[in-house]
Design a binder for these strands. Structure first.
Lengths: 332, 332
DNA sequence: CTGAAAGCGCTTACAG
DNA sequence: CTGAAAGCGCTTACAG
């Protein structure tokens, strides 16, 4: 491999001068610089970033923890993070945690000794118990896509999940629905709470019986839960689904129960993935996950150039109601 | 940060001895080793992998190029690659190329100067034009998920896509279908060819008119193409879809055209993602993408320990027909 | 089995 | 504006 020393010899200077023209930190006489650049070109020199990292202490690499990339939600976030990082000349070390806390901990140790410049953590499940390990981290850490209470010591950029649930509830309430139900993933507590709040404003309550938890975040899980719900509580006129894949199952369950959507049953979801576009198109509360990922990454990068620790703040991205074809006023 | 030198002083040895107990390369007297380990524990020492990389020339890091992670296909591959890598103590540098050749090229340069130990490239679109840059790479390269002709110089682990199409065709032919059509993504040439071969065996031909290309790999794209097809060619009794999201659109188009699946129209896809489970469940040819990813990564890692270049071979993973509810003999 | 020396390829003050 | 020196934290032969 060709080194800086090789370039220096070719250009008739020392390697410090080569370094100077590359980094631009120190002015170099134009003619010298041109000679160096020519030598770089001729030799096909490309700097050894490992050596540079050892000397500077910065790897220009950031770690990203994410629960999974098998679904669109985090997958899109990964792409967004990558985009922001690339603009800043950083690379992405990806770790998926897959509901495995021990695995997450191991990766955390790995990234630390690998000297990542910063760490972004999405999802409040797997790594939660290991966050204390980060208390004396030598690099900035930012949390995102956090639905439960976030630890005080790290800045977080997340969605206002409570409001996401509220918007869904308010929409159904305003359409005139009074008997509603929820199909939720267990972790989606904030959305359920927000949904309830929307009805509480009218003195209505969403009973615990009306909140069903799917056994698995899959269409099959949604189908089973919705099927059971519609069987035991046929008076329900609208259904709120906290996870997009559950919505797909619910839609099929409604069909199977002979209830047409939206006339016999309104259906509203959360951030319906593009891949789930169905007929009728599902009304949803969109979760600005790409914007969230972008904000979080930018916060992280800013901390790299500024003080070193990002402002200890909580930034909430606003969800947005998108009315499509699966909701309507109740029949009667 | 605590260094090897600190540990050495604490344990009353030199740093070389500390290195020896950590790497295990050279035997160390048990009592000394114990003292060193105790010092490591007390000081919370964790080796600086950047320094180690500079000294050894290995970063224990592999780059993975993938077209996107916004869908399940490559997302699942990423997780599989990560698993194999973790077992071997390597980390994943992820680059999504997003149909952007220039972006792919930039990332390629970045990974090279970052001294990745090896490179895995999935998908034969974005990076194809830049492969020559890799001709003098100092690290092993393996290609996977390659549907078009692969360049000779790199080993490839991929799916027998031609057979995947063939299996779909043979299934429909054996059910008795004679008037069939294809809904394809433009890049899926091998699958289309295989599908045709299955019918050619019976002296039947699938005309060019019967092969439609979706404008976009989305349910909407599949819907539009299927809708047009069913309108212009209502005699078709079965439809082969080369991409799972197209299948979803096709299913809706069939419904919209008043044709029940599978009685009035059989539908067969490729590797229907779990998230697309619908009623009727779609018959599909499954693509063993996880196994492929695993094989490719293991091949890559083997090259790291052995000769340095993986065997220049082409390994094809066998797809498998999975009959579910969306195919049946033609009506008449 | 342990230690002294050199080196991996860069950057960073500091002289000149 | 350019060069000589030291250092980043490790590993790797090589003596002893």
């Amino acid at each position: 491999m060709v080194t800086m020393q090789d370039v220096a010899e070719r250009a008739g200077v020392t390697k410090q001068t080569v370094s100077n023209v590359i980094t631009g930190r120190v002015a170099v006489r134009p003619t010298t610089a041109a000679r160096v650049r020519a030598a770089i070109e001729e030799l096909g020199y490309t700097p050894n970033l490992v050596a540079r990292s050892l000397a500077t202490g910065s790897t220009r690499t950031v770690g990203f923890f994410v629960p999974t990339v098998a679904g669109a939600f985090y997958g899109e976030m990964v792409e967004e993070v990558e985009d922001v990082l690339e603009e800043a000349g950083h690379h992405l070390l990806l770790c998926t945690t897959r509901l495995d806390g021990e695995r997450a901990r191991r990766h955390l140790a790995g990234l630390t000794s690998r000297s990542v410049d910063a760490l972004l953590i999405a999802g409040d499940q797997d790594l939660l118990g290991h966050l204390p390990l980060l208390s004396d981290a030598r690099f900035p850490v930012v949390l995102c896509a956090w639905e439960t209470e976030a630890p005080d010591r790290f800045p977080v950029v997340t969605i206002d999940y409570e409001r996401a649930g509220y918007l869904a509830g308010r929409h159904l309430r305003e359409l005139g629905h009074r008997r509603v139900a929820v199909l939720a993933s267990p972790a989606h507590t904030a959305r359920v709470a927000g949904f309830r709040r929307a009805f509480a404003a009218d003195g209505l309550t969403v009973s615990d019986d009306a909140v069903r938890y799917a056994a698995a975040p899959t269409p099959a899980g949604g189908f089973a839960a919705a099927e059971a719900l519609l069987a035991t509580d046929p008076g329900v006129t609208a259904l709120f689904t906290t996870h997009d894949v559950l919505a797909l199952g619910a839609l099929e369950a409604a069909r199977a129960a002979g209830r047409s959507v939206p006339h016999d049953l309104s259906l509203i979801g959360q951030d319906i993935s593009e891949v789930l576009l169905t007929h009728p198109a599902l009304t949803t509360v969109s979760i600005p996950k790409r914007e969230m990922a972008r904000q979080a990454t930018e916060l992280l990068l800013r901390a790299l150039t500024k003080t070193g620790t990002p402002a200890n703040s909580v930034q909430l991205m606003r969800p947005e109601l998108i009315v499509r074809g699966s909701t309507a006023p109740p029949a009667g």
